[in-house]
Amino acid sequence: MEEFIASTLRSSVPLAYAGVGCLFAIRAGIFHLGIEGLMLSSAFAAVGIAHETDSVLLAVAGALVVSAALSVVYWATIDLLHADSIIAGLGLTTLSVGGAAFLLDVIFDQRGRLDSGVGLPRPIKGAQAGISSLVTDLSILGWFAPLFVLLCWLVLRRTAFGLRITAVGSYSYGARAAGIRESRIRLHAMLCTSVGSSLAGVELALGGLRAFSEDLTGGRGFIALAAALFGQLNPIGTAFAALFFGSANAIGVVTQIHSVDVLPRPFILMTPFVITILFLTLSAIATRRAARLRRERIVAES
C-alpha cells in the first residue's frame, strides 16, 4: 500500500505541473498539444546541462529558457501567422522529439539515452531506517508541487491577469470591448504554460531517473491536457485529476514490481489511457448536462 501511494505521488508530480501549467493556455483559448514537446525538450535541456556542468540550478534554468523559447515560437506561429493551433502543437511536439534526438546525437554522440550525474535534491534523506519511502522518494519539486498548484490557482482565480486570460479564451468580443490586448495576454499565458511543462520535464528527468531518454515523456503531456479538462479547468481540480491519473499509472508500476500475473503488462500500461478516455467522456456528459440544467434554470427564472 505504501509503495502504491509513493508511486502514485511520484507519477502525479509531473502530471500536476504540466496539467496545471496548460490551464493557462487552455483558459486563454488554445488547446496546447505542444505540451508533450515542451516537457521533452525541457527534460533534454536539463539533463544535457546537468551532464556538462553538474549543476542542478543551471539545468533547471536552462530547461525553463528552452521551454519559454519554444513557447514563443508556438505563440508566433498561431497568433502572428494564424496557423492552426492543433496541427502546429503536434508539430512543436514532433520538432522537440526530433530536435532532442538530433542534438543528443550531434552534441553528446549518444543514441536514445543520456545520463546525468546529478539529480534534483530530495529534502528528506532516507538514510536512517524507519522513514517511509513516501517522503524520502519525493524530490524538491514534488514538495513544491502543492505550492505551485496554489500559486497558479491564485494567479488564475484571484488576479486581474487571470481574469484577462479567461476573458480572452471565453469571449473574444467581450475581451476586446474591455480593452484587453488579446495577443499579448495569449503570449503571457503561453509563457506560464511553458513554466509548468518545463518543471514537469525536469521532474521526469532529474527527479527519479537522473537520465534522459527519447521516450521519457511517453504521452504524459497529452494525459496532462486530459487532466486539465477533467479538472474542469480549475487548478485544484486538475491537481486531483493528476493524482488520479498518477494512481492509474502506479497500479501498473506496482503490479509490475510484484509481477502480478492478472493481465499481461501492456494491458496494465494502457490503463491510464483507457481511463483518460472514459473520464473525458464522463466529464463531457456532465458538462452537457450542466449546460442543459443551467438553461432550464434561466428559462424558469425569466
Binding site: 484571484r158 486581474a160 491577469f161 481574469l163 476573458a167 471565453s170 470591448a177 474591455a178 480593452g179 484587453i180
Partner: peptide, 23 residues
C-alpha cells in the same frame, strides 16, 4: 460584452482600469 465564464463581479473587475497585478 460581459464574459460568460466569469462571475458578474469578476466581469466587472476586469473592466476596471485601476486593477493591479496583485491578487
Amino acid at each position: 460584452s460581459l464574459i460568460p465564464d466569469l462571475t458578474v463581479a469578476e466581469s466587472l473587475e476586469l473592466t476596471d482600469p485601476s486593477a493591479t497585478h496583485r491578487p
